[in-house]
Design a protein around this nucleic acid. Structure first.
Lengths: 157, 157
DNA sequence: GAGAAAGATTACCAATCTGGTAACCATTGA
DNA sequence: TCAATGGTTACCAGATTGGTAATCTTTCTC
């Protein structure tokens, strides 16, 4: 069906969640899992990766938790996607043009390249400050308007 | 790695190949397979699908073969892609927004929707008359310039 | 220091998808 | 009738995916 993996979807939710925190605030993976409907055991692997890639900072131990490693305005959706899907590429011949002997004279190859960089540009243009702002706007409209309880962001236990 | 399947790639090659034919001309699947480096047994399934979807017309029996069902200018790359990948959608929540309870207030969902339609537009804008013209231009420059034997199109047996 | 609360890492699993092969059927022209 | 074609189906091995679970490591609190 040609879609992103669940992990990538979950990862975006996590980063979005963290984008909504006050600076200095921290939240546990379990809390995110619960509020963002991510399987509790699964989120560990995802967070681990986000941390390895340098998108989130983690603090171990009791009273530990997660926070963004950078400002939301400096994180693009593309970064999150590529952290889990690898370098964006609609077809093998985009990454490794030499692999297909036809690629030199293949106009479709050039199309894949174009579509790929198009998509990449789009995703790179989406930054998490904008996303969290949009979410805050939605939440401000209140539960009634969306038919949906707005997700509570603060981890204020 | 988030890329199109091989079938889709092959399908595009096939349609491109057929786009380069003179009107009324026909070519066999085996010939395409050989010239476009598609596994001989595999191409049958792909052709079968292309025919089922109404993109190519087939003639069975001895002296049979394939041709486009429509003019190349009326076939977009998107059609070929969706014939093999299903409706384009970067995430499940694009096709089935109701499935994820968060989607109502989820700004990422709207981003997936936007990126999807962006990609769809791009692919819909690529038509096979343009691709075959580009390929003809390349071929006209001769073998020396590409370091690659130009693919022979005419099935002149 | 003990213990609980976190994240980190690893092994494992079932289910699905994928690319591909092969055999056989159906149709058609010579 | 026979060979050449496309059509269909069954099958297969390997990779991927989404997910669970167990165990390790770090850190805070008492």
């Amino acid at each position: 069906m040609f879609s992103l993996g669940r992990q990538t979807d979950y990862a975006a939710r996590i980063v979005l969640h963290l984008s909504c925190l006050e600076p200095g605030e921290r939240v546990t993976a379990a809390q995110i899992a619960q509020m963002r409907l991510i399987p509790g055991a699964f989120i560990k692997r995802i967070v681990s990766r986000l941390s390895a890639v340098g998108l989130v900072e983690t603090v171990r131990g009791s009273r530990g938790g997660l926070a963004l490693a950078r400002k939301p305005s400096e994180i693009s959706l593309l970064e999150v996607v590529e952290a889990f899907e690898g370098p964006l590429s609609l077809n093998v011949c985009v990454e490794k043009p030499g692999e297909c002997p036809l690629s030199v004279t293949c106009p479709v190859q050039r199309t894949w390249v174009g579509a790929t960089s198009n998509l990449r540009d789009y995703l790179q243009g989406v930054r998490f400050d904008a996303l969290s702002a949009a979410m805050a706007r939605d939440a401000a409209r209140g539960p009634a308007h969306g038919g949906q309880k707005p997700v509570k962001i603060k981890g204020g236990s």
